[in-house]
Every structure is written in structure tokens, then in C-alpha cells.
Computed example of a mutant assay.
Amino acid sequence: MRRRVFLEIGGAAGLASLAGCLSAGSPSPEVEPGPPWRRDGEVYHTGHDGGMEMIGFAQSGSLTVGLSYAFPTQFWTVAGSRRNRIDLTDRNDAVHIMASVWDTDTETVFPIASGLRVSVERDGSSPIQKALWPMLSQKMGFHFGDNFTLEEWGEHTITVDIGSPSLQKRGGLQGSFEGIDSVSFEYNFQLSKRNYNISGTEKINKRGTHAAVPPMQMSRHPLSFAPRPSEIPGRLLGRATSGDADFLVFADDSSLVVSPRTPFNRFVLPLMSLSARIERDGQTVTEGSLTPTIDPSRDYHYRRPIDGVETGDTITISIDAPPQTARHAGYESAFLEMSDVTITV
């Protein structure tokens, strides 16, 4: 009988069998086009809560890089509003390497549109080099990742080249993250450790529900949580939903501030293109694009200077491009088809 395996973040429904498939000399597993319980246009709870293992932490200037790995996994890339499934078809895929970058003092996680470049090398052999995808997962929120082959298991040197984020920095982050830095890690990848230490747990009873796998809890590793409404400075003007994402709209000093986040886990949704229009008494007061911005009190958000808002004003936020991030299972059908959101002050 031919066994069917559904691949999800960090692993698969039958890890012992899949581990055998991925070992040298074994056939590749059959990869499904997507779990049958996927909810079109919405976030859904996956059938497997995948595990992960920390490789380590390294500092460069004001930044900290956290590096981890999981079982190789299927994921989806995004270009515009189109997604492309990256199947796990190479039986030599050994690990899914994940990296996060944050400001050491404030623990603010930095999204970088261009991704991070990673080199994996063993004993001076030809390095495996990739630009990691900016990604969203239900356990980690925003991070960078990709599947990697390994010529053999054992000690490896992993070098992470950090680019510079193309977004406005405010508050305590002004002047940080200048130039291009790199950090290195030494790690002993072991097949047995990958197969049995990061297996995760099945979540059959919850799979397909309009919910999410809980975020991971790991010391020293901050996640890209958006602040709660009460934590964001300024006046909350309203909130709305589009593409299953939550949008909070604020008036902050002399700016309009928009904070999109995932439902359930409250992760920021970066790398979007947003524009806004404010209408008063049937006339447009201001309109134009919003600037991606990051600061410790608002985390990743979008803003535009305004002269102020008044009671009765109508604010329309247009999603000109959804989050240009790859997605792990559970997020791949959400945050793509996103209609305008409108609130009345």
C-alpha cells in the first residue's frame, strides 16, 4: 500500500516513516498539494505542532541573531497576490534552517525584505549558500528560512550575512542596523537528533479549525508579536479585518498609524504595501502611501503624516500588496486576497 504523508511546519504526520524516506538511499515521500482541511482565505490550525532545535545565538553590534532548525518542510512563497508551493521533493533535504534578527536591548524583531544569506560548510568543502526566504509561521511568527541539503552529517560552520532593512526606524532603533554584518555558528548536525528530538506532536482534533498553533516558548528568543491595543501610543481610531488579518488604526502625534497582525497569535504582518485616504464631509482630506516603520513601542507598523482626524472622518486603508512573505502551513491561504478596510472615527 502506498503511504500518503502530509507535510507541515517542522515535520510530518508520521515522522518515523518520513525520517526513513529522507535518509540516504530511500525514496522521496509523496507530497500532497495541501492538507484537505485547509480553509480558503483563512488561518487554520494545522494537524501537527512541529518541533525545533536551537543552534545558537550570536551578537553583531546592536543586533542578536538566533539560529535554529527543524525537519525539512513544504512551504509557499508569495509574489504579489500569487503563491507558489515549494514541495519537499528532494530526498537529500536534511534540515529546515531558520534565523531571526532582533535589536538586543529592546528585543524588537527586524523584518528584512531581501532576506538573509546563509552559508553552510563542512571541513572546508564547497559551501551551500542560499538567501533565506522572509517567512511567517504560527510558531515563530516572522523569521527567515529554507530547506537545506547536507552532503553528510556532522560538524558544520554556518555563516549568516545580515542585510539592512529597508524601513524607517524610530525611537531607540534610530541609528541601529547600519551596514552589513555577519555572524558564524558551529553546529553538529546529527540524523538521529533530527529524527527524534524535534518530532513535535499531533493535533488531529484541532486540525482545520479557524485557530492557530500556539507560539513557541523559548528563552532568549523574542518573537514578532504586535503590541496589544492598550500598549500602542496614541488614540485608537478603530479596527477592522481583511484577508483574515486584523488591522488596528491609530492617530499618533501627527501621523496615521496602521498595525496589521495575524489573528490568534498576534504576529506582525510585514512587507505589505498600504495606502490610506481620509474623507471629511464627502471631501478627501489626504491620501497616499504609508511608510513601513519599526520602533520598540509599536513594533513593525505603517505610518503617514496627517494634519489630524475629526469625529465623523472616514478612513480607508487599501492593501496594494499583501505581505510579501513565504508562509508555512496554516497561513498559506490567508493574507492574500485583501479588500480595503474602512473605519469611521
Rank of each mutant, 00 (worst) to 15 (best):
residue 305 P to N: 10
residue 250 F to M: 08
residue 257 V to S: 13
residue 287 E to M: 12
residue 288 G to L: 13
residue 270 P to K: 09
residue 234 G to E: 08
residue 297 S to K: 01
residue 240 A to N: 05
residue 182 S to P: 07
residue 183 V to M: 04
residue 188 N to Y: 08
residue 287 E to A: 13
residue 228 R to T: 05
residue 268 V to G: 07
residue 222 P to T: 05
residue 264 F to R: 03
residue 326 A to L: 09
residue 191 L to V: 14
residue 263 P to R: 09
residue 261 R to V: 11
residue 282 G to Q: 14
residue 229 P to K: 06
residue 206 K to G: 01
residue 314 T to A: 01
residue 327 R to F: 02
residue 214 P to L: 05
residue 239 R to E: 11
residue 275 S to A: 13
residue 249 V to R: 00
residue 258 V to K: 12
residue 323 P to D: 01
residue 212 A to R: 02
residue 240 A to C: 03
residue 292 P to W: 06
residue 240 A to P: 05
residue 188 N to F: 10
residue 288 G to V: 15
residue 310 E to M: 14
residue 198 I to Y: 08
residue 192 S to L: 12
residue 312 G to C: 03
residue 212 A to I: 11
residue 245 A to M: 04
residue 267 F to H: 13
residue 269 L to G: 08
residue 262 T to M: 09
residue 251 A to V: 14
residue 215 P to A: 06
residue 210 H to C: 10
residue 252 D to F: 12
residue 278 I to V: 15
residue 323 P to I: 03
residue 202 E to A: 15
residue 184 S to Y: 09
residue 296 P to M: 11
residue 299 D to K: 11
residue 215 P to L: 04
residue 183 V to K: 04
residue 241 T to H: 07
residue 246 D to N: 09
residue 289 S to A: 13
residue 309 V to S: 00
residue 227 P to A: 00
residue 255 S to G: 10
residue 268 V to Y: 12
residue 228 R to H: 08
residue 268 V to L: 13
residue 273 S to T: 09
residue 298 R to W: 06
residue 225 F to C: 00
residue 208 G to L: 07
residue 226 A to H: 04
residue 307 D to F: 06
residue 249 V to C: 05
residue 247 F to H: 09
residue 308 G to D: 07
residue 191 L to N: 12
residue 263 P to L: 08
residue 326 A to K: 06
residue 267 F to A: 04
residue 182 S to R: 14
residue 326 A to W: 04
residue 220 R to L: 09
residue 265 N to D: 05
residue 296 P to K: 10
residue 290 L to R: 11
residue 250 F to Q: 01
residue 323 P to F: 03
residue 301 H to N: 13
residue 181 D to R: 14
residue 187 Y to V: 06
residue 286 T to Y: 09
residue 237 L to P: 02
residue 300 Y to I: 10
residue 228 R to Y: 02
residue 313 D to P: 07
residue 213 V to C: 02
residue 190 Q to V: 10
residue 212 A to P: 03
residue 229 P to C: 01
residue 185 F to N: 09
residue 318 S to Q: 06
residue 324 Q to R: 12
residue 254 S to M: 13
residue 286 T to C: 13
residue 253 D to E: 12
residue 202 E to L: 15
residue 234 G to Q: 07
residue 195 N to E: 14
residue 296 P to G: 11
residue 249 V to W: 02
residue 196 Y to C: 04
residue 202 E to P: 14
residue 304 R to P: 04
residue 223 L to D: 05
residue 212 A to T: 03
residue 235 R to D: 09
residue 293 T to K: 01
residue 244 D to A: 10
residue 214 P to T: 03
residue 246 D to I: 11
residue 290 L to S: 11
residue 319 I to G: 03
residue 233 P to R: 00
residue 243 G to T: 06
residue 203 K to I: 05
